[in-house]
């Protein structure tokens, strides 16, 4: 909005309380405060509560009271090689699945970005996987991956290839299911970016007889990049937090991503204090990515 319009609107907006009804200030507070309070009570307060527990040796499964242990939990976690391996596995998973999603999603978007019959229907059908429940998706990929009767091995002639029982392969198998599920998301955002590229740039390039590669790297990619970046950051964040798909598909040590380790620590080993500390380490990382994400969202919004 330009500055003149903003000034005009401010002068138009009634500032004094009207003769009847609630004042604008009262309505604003009535409309906003409940949401803020709700989020503080059910999101921030629990986090403060768990921050407290992160300095104790509390176990939710026993009746022993919590003892203050200072920074011991954090020290234990950061010096535990197993935790570092959970982070490495997660990083590997994030890189494989996000890269796959960008390649497939952007590729399909490039194919779709032309005049084709039934484009709307085709796009909607392609978007279906990302709307489904990850837990249920994990379940039916388990059926597809089955070494003896799964259709994947049959369709690609892989015999009795072990997708999920093989420690090396399992992480890739999970990433493939994730790529299937979330490439549509990258495709959706890429399509928006591609359709916003001005046509006259392509026409000018055609007149100059620019090569296909030149057009792609000098026109298409730079103009789509901001939106593609949103997709990449968002998927990175979600893949970093991944739980459902990996938890349902495989239970290998090689597929134990951070969320699964955290879940086991908290709800199977009942190391409540330790898991609260772990949760905090994860939380700080997620908030850092969120911050970058929101900056990009606002950047694209202003265009």
């Amino acid at each position: 909005m330009n500055p003149e319009a903003r000034v005009a609107q401010q002068t138009l907006a009634p500032t004094a309380p009207r003769a009847h009804g609630m004042s604008d200030l009262a309505i604003r507070n009535l409309f906003i405060i409940p949401t803020i309070v709700f989020l503080i009570v059910f999101n921030i307060f629990p986090l403060i509560y768990s921050l407290g527990y992160s300095f104790t040796d509390f176990r939710a499964s026993s009746n022993d009271p919590a003892h203050f242990v200072g920074l011991d939990n954090y020290r234990t976690l950061l010096s535990d090689p197993n935790i570092w391996s959970n982070f490495t596995i997660t990083a590997k998973y994030v890189i494989i699945s996000v890269t796959g999603q960008v390649i497939v999603g952007f590729g399909v978007a490039m194919l779709l970005n032309r005049n084709i019959p039934f484009k709307g229907l085709l796009t909607t059908l392609l978007l279906l996987p990302m709307m489904l429940s990850a837990a249920v998706v994990g379940l039916f990929w388990k059926l597809l991956y089955d070494p003896s009767f799964g259709i994947i091995n049959y369709a690609f002639g892989l015999g009795t290839f072990e997708w999920l029982a093989d420690p090396k392969m399992a992480l890739y198998a999970i990433a493939i299911a994730d790529i299937w599920m979330w490439s549509p998301f990258v495709m959706l955002l890429s399509l928006a970016g591609l359709s916003a590229v001005p046509k006259h740039l392509y026409e000018a390039a055609a007149i100059d007889r620019a090569s296909g590669l030149y057009v792609f790297f000098r026109i298409t990619l730079p103009l789509v990049a901001p939106i593609l970046m949103i997709a990449v950051i968002f998927r990175t964040m979600e893949a970093f937090k991944t739980f459902d798909l990996a938890y349902i598909l495989a239970s290998q040590p090689t597929t134990e991503v951070i969320s699964i380790r955290l879940y086991k620590m908290a709800f199977q080993e009942w190391q409540t204090g330790l898991s609260c500390a772990f949760a905090y380490i994860v939380l700080v990382m997620v908030l850092a990515i969120t911050n970058i994400y929101v900056k990009y969202l606002n950047k694209v919004k202003e265009r």
Binding site: L47, Y49, S50, K241, S259, L262, A266, S275, A279
Partner: peptide
């Protein structure tokens, strides 16, 4: 930003204190 950041919290992180 505060409102959006609550949406980004990993479920398992929130679930531990909520469970207690």
């Amino acid at each position: 930003f505060f409102i959006l950041s609550t949406r980004m919290l990993p479920p398992v992180v929130v679930a531990i204190p909520m469970f207690l």
